[in-house]
Each structure stands twice: as structure tokens, then as C-alpha cells.
């Protein structure tokens, strides 16, 4: 975590902007804001009824994949909502693996063995990896279920077992709804639980809470001082911010990042070309991204800063 210098809040006139250095990761909001769950900490308030963003079709994704070649995109990420609610998700991932590595963020609950067999075959046919990130918010039902819903721990762990049985090594991602000092104990407990569920090489990723969407109601939103100032950007490695190297394709255009979908200024245009503009870091969530760095990408794509 980055140490933050004491500053005064950014005023509209002095908001730092970040340029898109290179389009390394292209995200797809493949199931929009539609999800089978309604997690109380969801930063874009996904639910079975939230259709403010809808599903992406295989055709839309394919067009973006073609367009992405020109930009030299390195990796593709798929999120929602729950990506496996999109009935095209298996062909979409199969198609993507012809272009590059793919990562899909799932709650693990709706996975079907026949989909995973197809995806296993698609990955083995090609040269790129297919990563699954499964969201589980703690090593026990008592920690997870109050946030993600009744019996979601048990159901997600079944999904983890299914992935392992199909030869995948899922990355378990959890939002930190506990104190930072508890990380090591919770990760240790999680490793033991995952081993009991057949996952003998547990891979874990902790995400900071993003105090927007449903999470703002569960706990609290950002305060007026939780903003990035120009002073904070001095000598800061901008590649720690996802907007420096990513964009997200949705059914409503191209957005700056998968976190700020509800922000009016996050929609940058219709096409990737439109979306290469600099982005003003005016949001509280930008402050979290600044503090923790690389919160959305996989550990293998680590962009730790050099001096």
C-alpha cells in the first residue's frame, strides 16, 4: 500500500489526469450488471434485476478482439455481473483464446461441467492461459454468506472443486471486509480450507473495498478528502492505476475501468479509438486504486514500480 502525503482535497481545477500509456488489458463487461447474486458490497450494485448494463454478444466481443490487435492488447478480462449468465460466454472465451490470454471473474456458482470441459479443450488447443478468478469473501460461510447471500460459500466451493477437477487453478479473490492486520491469518485459514476442497495449490488475491455502489450503503461512501491531488501524483508510478493501461467494453460503449461504470464521466466513447483520451482522477475509487495499486489485474501481470 502506498503511503499518502498529507494534502488538501482536490478542487475541480486541479484534478490530475492520467493518460492511457498502452492498452495492455482489454476488459469486457460481458454480463453487464446482471448477476445471480446481490452482494452487499458490490461496487456496481449488480443483481438479477440490475440491467443498466446488459449482455455482450459474441459478435460484439469478436469485433473488439479484432480491433484490439492494432492496439497490441496483451490480455483480456471478462467480468459482470456473473459472466456465466451470458449464454454466449463459452464461445466468447473460446474465440478470445485465439487472440490472447483470458481471465474470467466469476462467483463460481453457476459453472457447468460441460462448459468447463469445452474451455479446458480450448485452452489446451492454443498457446494462451485461461484463468478463473472466483470471488469468495472469507474462508468460512460465517464470513462470506452475510455478504454474498445464503449458502453461497458452500456453492462457490463446489465451483472451485469443479474447476480443479477440470484441470484449472482458480485464483480466489476476496474483498477485504476485515482489518488489514487480519490478512495473514485469514489467508492461512483460506489455504487450509481450499486444500480440504481439493485445491492443493491455492492462489489468493485480496482486493480492497471500493466504497461505492452497494458498499457505500453497507458501510460508508468516500469522504471529501478521499481524492487524488496533483501533489500525490509527483513521482508516482502511473502504471499502478488501471486507467493507465486498460479500458472496458460494455453494451453502452467503452468505459475507463470496470469499477467506475456508474460514474457519468467514465464513459469515454463508442469505440476504443474514442476511449484513448486522458482520464481525470476525480473519484473516491481512484483514491483506493492509488493506495493499493494493480487491484484489478492478476498477480502474473504484476506491474510493481521500479525506482
Amino acid at each position: 500500500m502506498v503511503r499518502i502525503p498529507m494534502t488538501s482535497p482536490a478542487s475541480p481545477g486541479n484534478i490530475p489526469h492520467v493518460e492511457l500509456r498502452s492498452l495492455d488489458e482489454l476488459w469486457f463487461q460481458v454480463s453487464g450488471t446482471l448477476c445471480n447474486l446481490e452482494c452487499t458490497h458490490c461496487f456496481i450494485s449488480c443483481s438479477p434485476h440490475n440491467d443498466s448494463f446488459g449482455y455482450l454478444s459474441l459478435e460484439t466481443v469478436s469485433q473488439s478482439l479484432e480491433e484490439s490487435i492494432r492496439w497490441g492488447v496483451k490480455e483480456y478480462y471478462f467480468t459482470g455481473g456473473e459472466p456465466f449468465l451470458n449464454r454466449d460466454i463459452v464461445p466468447i472465451l473460446e474465440r478470445t483464446l485465439e487472440f490472447g490470454p483470458a481471465t474470467v471473474l466469476t462467483n463460481g456458482i453457476v459453472l457447468q461441467p460441460e462448459w468447463l470441459s469445452r474451455l479446458r479443450d480450448a485452452e489446451q488447443r492454443g498457446k494462451y492461459s485461461l484463468e478463473f478468478r472466483v470471488s469468495i469473501d472469507g474462508p468460512t460461510p460465517e464470513a462470506n454468506d452475510p455478504i454474498r447471500g445464503p449458502r453461497t460459500f458452500e456453492r462457490a466451493m463446489k465451483g472451485v472443486r469443479l474447476l480443479v477437477e477440470h484441470g484449472f487453478l482458480p485464483i480466489i479473490t476476496m474483498a477485504r471486509t476485515w482489518d488489514l492486520s487480519e490478512d495473514e491469518r485469514i489467508l492461512g485459514e483460506f489455504r487450509s480450507v481450499l486444500k480440504e476442497h481439493g485445491c492443493d495449490r491455492p492462489r489468493l488475491k485480496v482486493l480492497p473495498r471500493l466504497q461505492i455502489g452497494a458498499e457505500a450503503g453497507r458501510t460508508e461512501g468516500y469522504g471529501q478528502h478521499d481524492r487524488i491531488t496533483p501533489e500525490m501524483m509527483q513521482e508516482f508510478d502511473e502504471s499502478q492505476l488501471i486507467c493507465n493501461h486498460s479500458r472496458v467494453v460494455t453494451d453502452r460503449g467503452v468505459y475507463v475501468c470496470p469499477i467506475l461504470l456508474d460514474a457519468p464521466d467514465a464513459r469515454l466513447g463508442e469505440t476504443l479509438e474514442d476511449a484513448t483520451v486522458n482520464f481525470p482522477l476525480s473519484h473516491g475509487a481512484c483514491y483506493t486504486c492509488y493506495q493499493y495499486g494493480a487491484i484489478c489485474t492478476n498477480p502474473s501481470a504484476s506491474k510493481s514500480s521500479t525506482t
Binding site: S22, D24, S68, I69, R70, W71, G72, V73, K74, E75, F99, G100, P101, K127, Y128, S129, S239, N298, S300, A301, S302, K303, S304, T306
Partner: peptide, 20 residues
């Protein structure tokens, strides 16, 4: 472009390397 960037075979697309 970065001394400590990991370029793994399975997570690095051809178009990325081409552009690099």
C-alpha cells in the same frame, strides 16, 4: 519498457510483442 515486467509465454499475446 520496464525492467521488472514479467512476460510469460502463456499470458503474453503475439500482438503485444509485435507492438513492443
Amino acid at each position: 519498457r520496464q525492467t521488472n515486467e514479467f512476460l510469460w509465454e502463456s499470458t503474453t499475446s503475439t500482438q503485444f510483442l509485435d507492438k513492443l
